[in-house]
């Protein structure tokens, strides 16, 4: 239990996926103009990354890992990048169809964002990190969920800041993306303060 908690805190705050690992920069810059849309995007990322970590770690453990298949020493680990990206792409489509049919209320709030995250590098990044760190299935799910929560925190804070920045007088060359990146740098400095926690 203690280990799971450590993994969760480490991936959500200390090694924040956007601010210290630079994964998922595109939606972080692109969909952070309004707090509402940012929260929606963050929610969808939490949903997709958690499911994707579960499915990819299942596939890794029971099919790809050395000796998993028929325990005859068939080592398929070299296929992990190819398998993970295809599985994630298919999974997002599947989740979208499932939500539309079975849980329309959830689809209403997250559905718009689902197709946007298919090959978001954060999803693939988490799946690959789970393998490199040799996490089991439960640990992978916790790691995925926490990483995505980290993304949610970062994008919502960023959206809040951008709503304020809009009314500021910014030097012309820095208007637009540049000031957003400066804001991200300051947020990243703030998040570095957590690094002593673990």
């Amino acid at each position: 239990m203690k280990e799971l908690l450590l993994i969760a805190v480490a991936s959500a705050i200390v090694n924040n996926v956007v601010l210290s690992q630079f994964l998922g920069i595109c939606p972080f810059l692109g969909v952070s103009k309004k707090t509402e849309t940012a929260a929606g995007m963050g929610g969808a990322v939490v949903f997709v990354i958690t499911i994707a970590s579960f499915v990819t770690s299942l596939i890794y453990k029971f099919i790809l890992a050395n000796g998993a298949l028929m325990s005859r020493g068939i080592d398929l680990t070299y296929l992990q990048t190819i398998v993970f990206i295809l599985v994630i792409a298919a999974l997002v489509q599947f989740v979208e169809m499932f939500l539309k049919k079975s849980i329309p209320s959830l689809y209403e709030s997250l559905g718009v964002y689902l197709p946007l995250i298919t090959t978001n590098c954060a999803v693939l990044g988490v799946a690959l990190t789970n393998v490199t760190k040799e996490y089991g299935i439960l640990e992978s799910v916790v790691n995925g969920f926490a990483t995505a929560i980290g993304f949610l925190i970062a994008i919502v804070i960023m959206a809040g800041l951008r709503e304020k920045i809009e009314y500021n007088d910014i030097p012309k060359p820095f208007q637009g993306t540049a000031i957003v990146l400066i804001t991200a740098a300051l947020m990243s400095i703030a998040f570095m303060g957590f690094s002593g926690m673990i």
Binding site: L19, S20, F22, A178, L181, I182, S188, M192
Partner: peptide, 9 residues
């Protein structure tokens, strides 16, 4: 990490 954002900005 923050340096990356600053330089890119």
């Amino acid at each position: 990490a923050p340096g990356a954002f600053l330089v890119l900005a």
